[in-house]
Design a binder for these strands. Structure first.
Lengths: 109, 109
DNA sequence: CTTGACGCTACATAATATGTAGCTATAGAA
DNA sequence: TTCTATAGCTACATATTATGTAGCGTCAAG
């Protein structure tokens, strides 16, 4: 289901890894799910609660994709990062402080 | 049109800046557009060419949104980062090498 | 043998994105 | 002045995705 590096995606015939990644992250809720998992494992229903109003249909689809892509895995504790996923998650962290600066600057104008 | 920090977005009633950001970046082509601008200013048509097959309708919508959000601006040289946008762009850069590692690891399994 | 949590699936409806065509404006050459 | 080229779009029908609600099957505790 999910597109892997090397496969064609929107905007890239060749399937360059970065393009595949950007395409995946650009799908609704993907970034948000990765964000929520930063603080530890969560069950399906916990994720549903944190992502206010996400539909179970779509949440499930994204979780499947992220598992195929080996960014998350699933055990009795729920869903959580793989090693790869955790490395990606670390790159997302700085966005929090950036976004606060952004909010401040937009307020001024 | 675009949602700003403080406004309700998918998955966040309160409009926390990070949630607004993740929602915006999670819209198709947004990340890709920001990625392409990393290497300098590009005209509308150059962007269209780099984002193979993006429709002008949507490209225009995203550019409008990103301008409202003060991440990019537009002049005779085309579209390019604002200061804020450039800071965000810097956070995207490490994703390239991460994605290569990811591709290698997926190949093995 | 019921209750509650978990991880989903089905499906109709609504929101978004795509693809193609083509319009308007500006600049430079003929 | 009229041709050509480029830029920045807009219109619109169609196709793809996402949403919201209902509810199913499984397991474990009480």
């Amino acid at each position: 289901m999910a597109k892997k590096p090397g496969e064609r995606v929107r905007g890239s015939e060749t399937g360059r890894p970065i393009m595949v990644l950007l395409d995946q992250l650009g799908q609704r809720w993907t970034l948000r799910i990765l964000w929520e998992l930063k603080s530890g494992r969560l069950t399906f229903r916990e994720l549903q609660a944190r992502c206010e109003n996400v539909s179970p249909t779509l949440l499930n689809k994204r979780l499947k994709d992220l598992r195929e892509l080996q960014l998350i895995d699933h055990d009795t504790g729920g869903y959580g990062y793989t090693q790869l996923g955790s490395a990606l998650g670390k790159h997302l962290k700085p966005l929090d402080s950036w976004s606060k600066r952004w909010a401040r600057q937009l307020d001024q104008s």
